[in-house]
Design a protein around this nucleic acid. Structure first.
Lengths: 336, 336
DNA sequence: CTGTTAGCGCTTTCAC
DNA sequence: GTGAAAGCGCTAACAG
């Protein structure tokens, strides 16, 4: 894996018959006589020259590289987020260094350290471990969803609270009387916790009795769902609830399949709304279930925008973007 | 987005009371007196020093960066491939520069140019446009699936031919008598074309009459599927085929839903096997349909392995890895 | 405007 | 062993 050596600026200068500095100026768009500019441009063409990134990076201490720290890209939400981050960066002439941390704190710390030391210009992080204290104080950084207690870092997230409310309002609008809430969460606090707050608020507002699964995710989700379902069956087999707001599409879909396998009909007996807006085979495909969709593209764009603006002006410490309801087959608004 | 300056090697040398070169040696694992090594290591700790990537890169012309050029990360196959590439690189101390080309040839060429000029040490490409002639001759590169006529570049792929055969053999094993094949392809030739060859070969071998959709993908897939279905209905509504081998899980799943919507039962009336092995919500979840699964992790590992070995020894021009059948609900082996 | 030059931080000779 | 010094290719400051 050893590329061969490319022509240098010196070569271009010689070829063009001008001084080194002149070549540099042409490249950096600093005014130069028309005649020289042309000569230099020709020489660049002829030699197929491109600036050496290290030399420039060494000189000006910029890499045009931004690291994205994310658990993985196999989760469709992360995948989509990654994709949009790449586009947003590319538009600005920045490149993406992808760091999949797999939930391994050490790997996140590794990447953070690398980021700290002049490998990247900034970091966007979507992380579920406790790396707050490892964030180098001088590193430009934006986090998605998470909140680190010991450092003030600009955060970007969906308006999870409003999204939680919206889910319940939609369920009610579609005829539900008893919506429940389902969630399996990590141990780290984040903005998405507010989905539940939104649910509880809506219950209060519309006079509903809150009822939910809210457990730390230990991998025994299906078991917990089954037990919950058992407890909510009436003697005749019908259910005491008729709507489900799931914290994520993933778990909502899981519950959906459980309901089907137990002979319930969706959306006739139970309607389901998830959160995230995940599509089956990528961006243009169908949703798994009806969902409160996060504006992933906008979220990504916002992260990049804030990061790139972190030069002088103080960044907003929290930016919330609205999530939208979208039909995905598990609600009764399917006439469309 | 302006990080602050980090301590340099000079600072470490001063702190440790040794010469600059000694520090360099410690860092690069070149023998140094025990006493000095300790002093240097202490100083490094104290200053929280890390080597400057640009300076080192400038000096030794290596970045430890590998670019992955891929259409996007929203397609679950690409997403998974990206994820495994990242792991494989990370294990080797390499970093991943993610380039989503979105099928825009100019973007691929941009990234290729960047790669050519000392920004990355190598490139792994999974691309569906015609960039063969833009590949810099000296750039270490490995391609997945694709074949570029004008350049000899090591290729990695699944054994698509054997996979195609396997799909038919499995369908026969599960009781099918008339398997068809469905494919919507790009205009560029690649290893995956051999899935069809495998299908045709199996037809020949087992005395089956080939019957298939094989069209350039123009986005009118559903329409074409519907027409095909219409043509294969007997007067009594039953179908003239009882098995489907789909070139991809995506289109297989699409066909699956079409069949259901028309009242056919899967796998009772028709069994379906796709190709790729895509999982619903990421790596540990269920398949969409029964499938010939590509060994994505191994494929990624192989790409990295070949790329990193491209120093001296000639690389194999084609590496094929076996694909495996896995049950996913659309075949009749579901007893398990 | 142009050419010259001093480093950016590091690796790697090369004398000692 | 160790330390001094020559660049890697580039930018930016400076003198012409």
């Amino acid at each position: 894996m050893t590329p061969q050596k490319a022509p240098t600026m010196k070569d271009v200068a010689r070829e063009a018959g001008v001084a080194l500095g002149t070549v540099s100026k042409v490249i950096n768009g600093i005014p130069v006589s028309e005649r020289n500019r042309l000569k230099v441009e020709q020489a660049i063409q002829a030699l197929n020259y491109e600036v050496n990134t290290y030399a420039r990076g060494l000189k000006i201490q910029k890499s045009n590289l931004v690291a994205l720290i994310i658990p993985n890209t196999t989760n469709p939400f992360f995948a989509s987020f990654t994709d949009h981050i790449e586009s947003s960066l590319y538009k600005r002439g920045l490149r993406l260094l992808l760091c999949c941390a797999d939930g391994i704190p050490q790997k996140e710390i590794d990447y953070l350290n690398m980021a700290a030391n002049n490998k990247v210009d900034g970091v966007i992080a979507l992380t579920y471990s406790d790396i707050g204290k490892h964030i180098p104080p001088s590193l430009p950084m934006v986090v998605f969803d998470r909140f680190f207690e010991n450092r003030v870092i600009p955060r970007v997230a969906s308006d999870n609270f409003a999204g939680g409310c919206l889910a319940i309002e939609k369920l009610l609008e579609f005829g539900c009387r008893h919506p429940i809430y389902i969630r399996f969460h990590s141990v780290f606090p984040g903005e998405s916790d507010k989905r539940k707050d939104g649910y509880l608020y809506a219950c209060e507002k519309y006079g509903l009795e809150p009822d939910y699964i809210d457990e730390v995710d230990r991998g025994d989700r299906l078991q917990i769902m089954k037990e919950f379902l058992e407890k909510h069956k009436r003697p005749d087999g019908s259910l005491t609830f008729d709507g489900v707001f799931s914290h994520t599409d993933y778990h909502g879909y899981m519950f959906y399949r459980l309901l089907l396998s137990e002979g319930y009909r969706v959306p006739e007996d139970v309607q389901i709304i998830g959160f995230d807006g995940i599509r089956k085979f990528g961006s243009d495909d169908d949703l798994f279930i009806s969902s409160i969709c996060q504006p992933i593209e906008l979220l990504a764009e916002k992260c990049v925008e804030i990061l790139t603006a972190m030069d002088g002006t103080p960044a907003p410490c929290l930016t919330l973007l609205p999530a939208q309801y979208r039909y995905g087959g598990t609600t009764r608004d399917g006439k469309r």
